[in-house]
Simulated scan of single mutants.
Amino acid sequence: MSTTGKEPAAAPAKKRLTTSAMIASIAAEGQATRPAPFGHALVELAKRDERIVGLTADLGKYTDLHIFARAFPDRFYQMGMAEQLLMSTAAGLAREGFVPFATTYAVFAARRAYDFIAMAIAEEKLPVKIACALPGLTTGYGPSHQATDDIAIFRAMPDITIVDPCDALDIEQAVPAIAAHDGPVYLRLLRGQVPAVLDAYDYSFELGKAKVLREGGDVLFISSGILTMRALEAARALEGDGIRAAVLHSPTIKPLDVATILAEVDRAGRLVVVAENHSRIGGLGEAVATALLANGRAPRFRHIALPDAFLDAGALPTLHDRYGISTDRIVERTKGWLEED
């Protein structure tokens, strides 16, 4: 209490981060976005292909499948909070000639429904497309909802393709591509207001192909998902310091486009940095490192990924900075590695 008899002046209010932990957009303030690219792309595909059906485990709104449900209510199935039932039903529909898109959160598909996906879908090579929101660190709700190990889990499953799109354009083009693929696909889904990044580049999605988005002679970023967006931002920032960074976007994690990766790594003299929104265990970084060593390549190699840990809850900007996948942290770490060399 103040000894003057007056209440002390209140401290200036600090600006609070108001990012929703569950459904926060990963778009930066003022960044161009497109709403629900997955939902809209699936509707457009379903107009042309009567085999397309949609299923969800009580998460239509949070995987953008509600857009499909409004357009095609007779081809939409709400399975409730039962991922095992979701995947088994999708397998049954695939056996009857449909192309099911099953949506849930990535943690629930990877951890809760793994055996059902393995036995009912992957072993049978059925064309079920598993589109899962909240991949990696795209929610602040903590370990129960952060799918930081989903790629590692599905990379170990035979006969399943893994796609990690960067932005709205990637998703829009990936949807018909994975539907046409004769086999199961796991898609790491960005939902809601999704950044529009790749429109500025001469880019088109091809299943199984990595694409060079930007040239540079000092650093080669090999990235997937939202870390391609961050790698592009970091490359522009590094350019201000005279550092030229290339970006190779690898939206398909399995099968990996080893030929393109080797061709880019063979351009000597560049620091190779793999950047991913996933644990450093079992993801893109390990896949690239294995491919390099198996083919006799040993470049200067560094890895930007999430730690092998259960991550904190909180606002996404804070968490991305804390765990090293924000643009500023990528720039900082890349400069440090170049100075070491």
Rank of each mutant, 00 (worst) to 15 (best):
A275H: 05
L248S: 08
F38M: 04
A237K: 15
D74Y: 04
A291Y: 10
Q31P: 03
P165G: 11
I130Y: 12
H181P: 06
G39S: 06
G269S: 11
L169D: 03
P35N: 05
L86N: 02
R297A: 03
V247D: 07
A259K: 15
E233Y: 10
E124N: 13
A156P: 03
R267G: 00
L190V: 00
V265R: 10
F101T: 03
R214C: 09
E172F: 10
D170M: 08
D341A: 14
H303C: 02
G5V: 06
S25L: 05
H320F: 14
K129W: 02
H320G: 06
A82D: 10
R75A: 05
I26K: 13
T318R: 15
R16G: 00
G92Q: 02
L213S: 12
N277W: 00
R267V: 15
D159M: 04
V107L: 02
D149S: 14
M87F: 13
M81P: 06
G30E: 06
V272C: 14
R280L: 02
R280C: 10
T19F: 07
A46N: 10
A313L: 07
A9T: 07
K15E: 14
S250H: 01
T89K: 00
D328A: 15
V53G: 02
R333E: 09
F310L: 14
A113D: 07
V212M: 15
T4R: 10
D167Y: 04
T89G: 00
M119E: 03
A13W: 12
L238P: 11
L220E: 07
R70S: 09
S25I: 04
T139R: 02
L262S: 04
K335A: 08
G225I: 06
L271D: 12
F116Q: 15
Q193C: 02
I171Q: 07
G192I: 00
R155E: 05
A315L: 05
L213N: 10
L248N: 09
D182A: 15
L338I: 13
V107Q: 01
E340C: 07
R188K: 12
P176T: 04
H145E: 08
Y105N: 05
G92Y: 01
R48S: 13
I325W: 08
C132A: 13
D150Q: 14
L93R: 07
E215K: 15
R297M: 02
L93M: 14
H181K: 12
T103V: 10
E206N: 14
R244L: 11
A313N: 07
R70L: 03
D312A: 12
D115E: 14
A110G: 01
Y77M: 12
D321P: 03
R333W: 04
T327H: 08
R333Y: 05
E50D: 13
T318I: 12
E239Y: 04
V272E: 11
K14Q: 13
R191T: 08
F116T: 14
A122P: 06
L316T: 03
